[in-house]
Amino acid sequence: MLGRSVVCVGLSGVCLALFLVGSSTQSKAGACEPSIAVEPMSAGLAHLSISASCIPLRRVRFRYDTVELVRKLDEQGRIEINFDCFLGDKVPLTVTFQDGPSVPVQLRTLDLDRITMVAVVWKGTVNLDLHAFEYAAKLSDENHVWAGAPSSRWQAEERKRHDGRGHGFVSYASDGSSEGDQIEVYTFVHEPNQNSGAVTLALDYESRSSHPGDQDTCGTGLYADLEYKAFVWHQDGKVSRSRGAFAPSECNRPVGEIARYNSKALPQLFFTR
């Protein structure tokens, strides 16, 4: 999925918790006092408001356990991010400014006990798409949730109210163009009274399946056996981690639908009776 952004610029609002970070730094831009505010949000999100006016347009690295995301400050040296706490909010986040300090941040979120979050992380300038087929959804159905079908936590809540079943949304959605790790996150908001149903999670190696002749992703190409990691935050506070890789594939071989959306690549969500 191309052209997606995880950065929300200009988001206003009063932070419930504000952590002013008073690091005295020496950078090319002069002494700076970067500030990072954390606002807890629903659906396992933490809103980060970052301001470092002395170092505009510099990179900011977000280190969360083994995952490193890289984003860029705007012209005013600010960035707003809805951060998916897919490892929970106890795992520290370290924000490192280019030509600036490293700042530990305590994440805060509201309701990790009512969600399951699945994050797929990979490296490389290729695109993977995480697809959630909720309740036997077909590709064209509303309950097929992925980065190409815009969704939000509000839409997930609305669908939940409508049919009495949990639903989810895709928040982070990398297209392979970011620096650092690429990441996609699907967050499922549970309906407490639900006792049946299944959500099929599938991974599409989009760069390869859409462009079977792409020499980087097939045959002996650099990303022919692309590795990925999957993290699952469970309602009970447990985190499971897994690693996977795509087997190399012959170049120019078209990929069928079943093979394209590989449900064996990821854990599945199902609710027992």
Binding site: L203, D225, E227, S242, R243, G244, A245, F246, A247, S249, R253, V255, I258, A259, N262, S263, K264, A265
Partner: peptide, 24 residues
């Protein structure tokens, strides 16, 4: 397999192929 590996202290890498019913 994943539960067993976890208990034994192994890390697991899953290799998925174009055949959805074959996983290493």
């Amino acid at each position: 397999i994943e539960r067993f590996a976890d208990r034994e202290g192994y890390s697991v890498e899953k290799i998925v192929d174009t055949d959805p019913e074959a996983v290493q």
